[in-house]
């Protein structure tokens, strides 16, 4: 697992993907920080976090698009699948690499927090840390969806577009569920929402069910990805 983690982290920063991801992330978070905290005179980063969500919809698929599909294309999956390793650890190594890259991005928030701490009379670190946790949890759920989709195709363009589409769908799922009249369907749909729990984190609400929700999202999709790899062996 660590071998794969290390290789993928290296791959991000040997190619331009890692740098593009971080620079876009820093650029937008910097802008949001300036617009919603400094200019608005707020001593919190609530709106920075909630606006970043929109950016992540497009940025995270960029991180995950090639994680599985490239192996298929370059046939390096033959190395991974014939090595004495467990399939889930292959997937998990790749997942961790993407999550770590996201974490590098999120680190900038600590700088912003430091600035606010310096400028404002009071800064609530608890809410801030809750926000960071929420962002990372949401990130891991979206990354696992991206990895799953990446494992279904050899083509990175298909991978990135479908990941964006699925994540957008999740983004709008609250709206969609509200338009459906049948109670149980709309309830089922809204329970899939990952935006509402994320927004709760940005308010500083630390709730266990939300954490469990993100965790289960992540584990289910990573598990499915491992099954996709396994299915290759059984496909006839």
């Amino acid at each position: 697992m660590w071998a794969i983690f290390k290789r993928e982290i290296k791959a991000y920063f040997l190619s331009s993907i890692g740098y593009i991801f971080l620079s876009v992330f820093y650029l937008f978070s910097g802008y949001f920080f300036y617009a919603t905290s400094i200019m608005a005179g707020r001593a919190d980063l609530k709106y920075v976090f909630s606006n970043l969500l929109v950016i992540l919809i497009f940025l995270l698929p960029m991180l995950t698009m090639k994680l599985m599909s490239e192996d298929k294309k370059l046939k390096t999956d033959q190395l991974l699948l014939t090595s004495p390793v467990n399939l889930f650890s292959v997937v998990f190594g790749k997942f961790l690499a993407a999550l770590t890259t996201l974490f590098f991005g999120v680190l900038i928030m600590f700088v912003f927090a430091g600035v606010l701490c310096f400028l404002a009379t009071s800064f609530d670190w608890i809410i801030f840390l809750c926000n960071v946790l929420g962002l990372l949890l949401l990130g891991s759920a979206l990354i696992s969806i991206g990895i799953f989709i990446s494992s279904l195709t050899e083509n990175q363009v298909i991978s990135v577009i479908s990941s964006c589409a699925v994540i957008l769908l999740l983004f709008f799922i609250d709206g969609i569920s509200a338009t459906i009249n049948m109670n149980f369907i709309s309830k089922a749909l809204s329970s899939l929402s990952i935006i509402r729990p994320y927004n709760e984190f940005t308010y500083g609400l630390f709730s266990l069910p939300n954490i469990v929700l993100f965790f289960s999202f992540t584990i289910v999709f990573l598990f499915l990805t491992a099954r996709v790899l396994e299915k290759k062996r059984w496909a006839s």
Binding site: R7, K10, A11, L14, S15, L74, K75, T76, D77, Q78, L79, L80, T82
Partner: peptide, 12 residues
């Protein structure tokens, strides 16, 4: 195992 196409990561 050496498959027909060597499983190499070209960027490394």
């Amino acid at each position: 195992y050496l498959p027909e196409t060597p499983p190499l990561y070209m960027d490394m």
